[in-house]
Simulated assay, not measured.
Amino acid sequence: MSSLLSPESLAFCAKVMEKSGVSENIYVYGCQDFPPKSSFTCAREEAEIVISGAVGDVLAKTGVDPRDIGVVIVNISTFNPVPSLSAMIVNRFKLREDVLSYNLGGMGCSAGVIAVDLAKRLLQGRRNTYALIMSLESPTSSYYLGDDRSKLLSNCLFRMGGAAILLSNRPSDRLSSKYELKHTVRTHLGADDRAYKCVSQEVDKDGNIGMTISKDLMAIAGEALKANITAVGPLVLPISEQFLFLATLVARKVLKIKGIRAYIPDFKLAFEHFCIHAGGKAVLDEVEKKLSLTKWDMEPSRMTLYKYSNTSSSSLWYELAYAEAKGRIKKGDRIWQIGFGSGFKCASGVWRALRTINPAQEDNPWIDVIDQFPVTL
């Protein structure tokens, strides 16, 4: 792929990567082929590999019969072939004829939590069934070959990744489940033109399709996060923190008292673990600052970015797997997943651990290398 970019574009990408907080050992599917395969062919192969591996693993681990799955949801941003990827799962694993199948496209990196929210709502209408979620990204399909620097950023940041999640509303599964879903909260700023356009797929002057990332992204992400935590706070925070937040809000907005800063609640009173979408170093720096988190709190997100780069919606599950591999998850612990996505959206998932996770009994992508982390960035 590098031979298809100009020297100037390659130099720009190299400069971005040096400051990205990402390891040099990041894999891009299809780049070993010469002549290069088409982006569509690479993307389909990429999706088949990730889906068959992840879904096969989760079914093997849980012992669930594919015919017992009542809901299947795939979320992926830019690669949406025909038949759909959700249909690929139905075909490969021979799901039943009345399965509710959904394929969420173009929803960005927050779509993993959005898929969980959709699954939760669908399970509320069906009894004793399972919902299978496949969160993945296939950046090969949208690899940009032009010289527009705002579009070259996506080449530097996004990489292949995927995770399969199985949700159940069967009471008998509570004893064997890892986590209980407590809340999902979705915030959408798409009515604002500036937020709507800050991440968008466009054609450049030469006809090359690419993902434009605007300079407004960090400001918009901050606004989305603020709106989302305002909605999450009352659901999870102790009364004392809610009172302080409300009191400062009234003083600033209603009484118009100058000099009073917005009170940011201490979310460490509500959560033991934070899984923040590994969208990039700047995104993680901003969330760390906004929520007053520690290096320990941010470690799963930063190490996921370092080892896997931005795997879009699946990054939240790589981060949770990191915490599991480190032996951090104890029974009763509360986990906050925060995802950001084009549109512009912010979505939160709140979970509670139903049991202590023993790393020795886990098989996740970190197990073989976890002793090497954290690394110094």
Rank of each mutant, 00 (worst) to 15 (best):
R126V: 13
R126K: 14
T129E: 06
L136R: 11
S138F: 10
P139E: 13
T140G: 14
S141A: 11
S142H: 04
G146R: 00
G146M: 01
R149F: 01
R149E: 04
R149G: 07
R149W: 03
S150G: 02
K151D: 10
K151H: 01
L152F: 03
C156W: 08
L157R: 15
R159M: 01
R159W: 07
R159V: 06
M160Q: 11
M160K: 09
M160Y: 12
G161R: 05
G162Y: 01
G162Q: 03
G162P: 04
A163R: 00
I165K: 02
I165Y: 13
L166Q: 07
L166P: 02
L167S: 11
L167V: 01
S168Q: 15
S168Y: 07
R170H: 11
R170E: 09
P171E: 13
S172C: 09
R174N: 10
S177I: 00
S177P: 04
S177N: 08
K178R: 10
K178E: 09
Y179F: 12
E180I: 05
L181N: 04
H183K: 06
T184A: 13
V185E: 03
V185H: 04
R186W: 13
T187V: 08
H188S: 14
L189P: 08
G190C: 02
A191E: 06
A191N: 15
A191Q: 12
A191I: 01
D192H: 12
D193A: 08
D193G: 12
R194F: 06
K197P: 05
K197L: 07
C198V: 01
V199W: 08
S200W: 05
S200V: 10
S200Q: 11
S200G: 09
Q201M: 09
Q201D: 15
E202F: 11
V203I: 06
V203L: 15
V203M: 14
K205G: 07
N208T: 12
N208R: 13
G210R: 05
M211P: 07
T212N: 11
T212R: 10
T212S: 14
S214A: 05
S214K: 03
D216L: 06
L217I: 09
A219C: 15
A219Y: 14
I220M: 02
A221D: 06
A221K: 11
A221M: 11
G222A: 04
G222N: 07
E223D: 11
E223Q: 13
K226N: 15
K226D: 14
N228E: 10
N228I: 07
N228H: 10
T230Q: 09
A231W: 03
A231Q: 10
A231D: 05
P234T: 07
V236T: 03
V236A: 00
L237F: 05
L237Q: 01
L237Y: 03
L237P: 00
P238L: 01
P238R: 01
I239S: 00
I239L: 02
S240Q: 02
S240F: 00
